[in-house]
Design a binder for these strands. Structure first.
Lengths: 219, 219
DNA sequence: GCGAAACTTAAATAAAACTTAAGAACAATT
DNA sequence: AATTGTTCTTAAGTTTTATTTAAGTTTCGC
């Protein structure tokens, strides 16, 4: 993992770099705001350890820059400014952690492990065919990047179809998915909903198999 | 946001609960390992503040349980055990942060904001859509640079929506965020609060998806 | 070309959300 | 402890929108 250490005290920097490398990071080091911003251009950096008191400016500016341009890049602040107000400010500006000097290296390493293990995390589940994308958790659907508003039943119907791409679902099966048990439906509801869906999406999305049912997806 | 406070000192717990509520969390409190595990069954909890010294066991067991079953649930440890070894252990077992008592409440709140904004991938303590800006730390909201006064529930509601921009939240989900467990709400409260919010902000801010829920932000 | 199945349309019905306003609960202040 | 003002909940009435129904039209396979 690629770590940028921004620290102007040469001695501290050297010691830290060495032990961070021992911890398995590839460490880049710089001592000024300017150099830090330079490094951040590169998109190579995955984790930042930031001292606030720098010779050519305030480390807080580096933090702001990072959170503006690469908001998910974790930053751990490491500084002599240990007042509560400083901490609150740093954390609220987007820092992921804040250690006041003097600190124990073991604690820093533990906190860096927390930050880096968070980098390896997952995303929400999406159903899609071509440029029709459904996010079930967020209850949203988009077509060609544009959000599409689907009423409840239409959403359920499309979801059923997308969950069974390539498989034919009979009207009966679809009804079972849309309606509670015992809630008999007396008419051509499914046909009507299909109709409405087709008006909102490309017509190839839902194919009819006469006498059998409907399928979504390519084939 | 639904927070579980695990703390056996009755006095501390009471004080903390109150100020956490003031910070806008719905707080559930328990004092034992057993009760904590119970609460965690419910899947309602989004954030945990954990004391380690509990009467019927070690809080570390609660942490282990969480990280086994609900990996991504953030846990902030808050304890009298302040040695480096304890900290490293706690953090390496999956805690997201670790504060040793005595601590300053302002710092705890700031660190909780870090944890909760990570849940919603917001970058700092400012949430905004267009010219509606919410400062979670300061508990203020403004619209077109003008401060807007929001009562607690309205604030919580707007916060929940802003934390989930683009995601649809059902009335049920919103209720879960505003009310503590067992505090059943019998009526159309959410609708009424939404109504009040809409009177104070541009009407495009909160969209209704009939039968599904509400969304804030552009889509 | 015939009949069954699916499509389309519009109106009727049902369901959800909005709007009010009143009073209960809660806080702050004296 | 009483008073005032604020915030929250309830509930009823209204409006809006989704869903169902039903009737007329088209399409498909035989």
């Amino acid at each position: 993992m690629h770590l940028l250490l921004v620290e102007d005290d040469e001695l501290v920097a050297q010691g830290l770099s060495r032990s961070l490398r021992q911890q398995g990071y590839s460490v880049e080091h710089c001592a000024t705001v300017k150099a830090a911003l330079q490094w951040l251009q590169s998109d190579q950096i995955e984790l930042v350890v930031l001292d606030l008191g720098l010779p050519d400016g305030d480390g807080i500016d580096v933090l702001k820059h990072i959170k503006k341009h690469r908001k998910s890049l974790p930053v751990v602040i490491l500084t002599a400014r240990g007042s509560i107000d400083d901490k609150v400010l740093g954390l609220d500006l987007g820092a992921d952690d804040y250690l006041a000097k003097p600190f124990d290296p073991a604690e820093l390493f533990a906190r860096l492990r927390v930050a880096s293990r968070r980098l390896t995390q997952a995303q929400s589940s999406l159903l899609s065919v071509d440029d029709v994308v459904m996010d079930i958790a967020a209850h949203t659907v988009s077509y060609q990047q544009q959000p599409v508003n689907l009423p409840r039943k239409e959403f359920m119907l499309l979801k059923a179809l997308l969950e069974n791409q390539g498989r034919v679902l009979s009207k009966q099966q679809l009804e079972n998915k849309l309606y509670e048990w015992g809630e008999e439906v007396g008419s051509n509801t499914i046909e009507v909903h299909i109709h409405h869906l087709r008006k909102k999406f490309p017509k190839e999305l839902i194919k009819t198999l006469r006498g059998i049912g409907y399928v979504a997806g390519k084939r």
